[in-house]
Simulated assay, not measured.
Amino acid sequence: MLSRASILSGRQVRSLVAHTTKACSATSSPATKDDGPMFRRPVRQEPGKVRLGFVPDEWFTFFYKKTGVTGPYTFAVTFSTYLISKEIYVMEHEFYNGLSLAIMWIAGIKILGPKLAKYLDKEIDDYESQWNETRTVNKDTLQEAISDEERNQWSMEGQNMLIQAKRENVALQLEAAYRNRLLAAYEEVKKRLDYQVEKQNIERRIGQKNLVDWVVKKVKASITPDQEKQNIDSCIVALGALASKA
């Protein structure tokens, strides 16, 4: 008797697990921008609604379209009566043992069930919060790493600008050195040209002085003492005339 009940209860548990798994996969959260286009993050499902403490509510609502609200209870009573009347389900001593165990089980569920459920829910919430906290910490760490990488890329752009500025400074220095060398060459050429001009001017002055000296010397050599005396007398007469006029 107990073996039959255990077999039936095992089948019910497996069907309930399969139904819950199917509902979990069907109601999983859609893909978000952070999770990626091909990944759906599963959401922890709450237990489905049950009646009589263990029977899924879907088993009752299945009869509503055909039999109404009282249909599931009528089916359970008639089917149980059929099994008992045909002695398919025999009420031997194991039945009463199972009945007493069921009463103890129901009493334990009613008394300890809420406290145990509250404790287990709290443990599940703590476990889930720990996972979420770990996920949040990892996400913050990765976000910080991304920010550091972006900052490093920005720094590399600044390094490129600095290298370009240094190249421009070197080009300006080369241009300044080139212009300084042009100025130095200009000054040296000007000095040499000024030297040649000054040299020609000196040669011209020396030649002119020598020519004047030679002419004066020749003129003096051509004047006789009588001519010189006559020139002096004529000069004296001219000076006297000028003195008388004054």
Rank of each mutant, 00 (worst) to 15 (best):
A5Y: 10
G10K: 13
V13C: 11
L16Y: 12
T21I: 15
S25M: 10
A31W: 12
D34M: 08
D35F: 10
G36M: 07
E46Y: 06
G48L: 03
P56M: 09
D57T: 11
P72F: 02
F79P: 01
T81M: 14
Y82P: 01
K86T: 09
Y96L: 10
N97W: 07
I103H: 00
I109L: 07
A117Y: 06
K118G: 01
W131M: 06
R135K: 14
D140N: 09
T141N: 10
A145T: 00
A145Y: 00
E149P: 04
Q153E: 04
W154D: 15
S155Q: 15
M156H: 09
V170E: 15
A171D: 11
A176D: 02
Y178I: 03
N180W: 07
E188M: 03
K191Y: 12
D194N: 13
K199P: 00
I206V: 12
G207P: 01
Q208P: 01
W214C: 07
V215Y: 09
K217N: 13
A221P: 02
I223W: 01
Q227K: 02
K229N: 06
K229V: 09
N231W: 03
I232H: 05
I232Q: 01
S234K: 00
L239Y: 05
L242M: 04
L242R: 06
S244I: 02
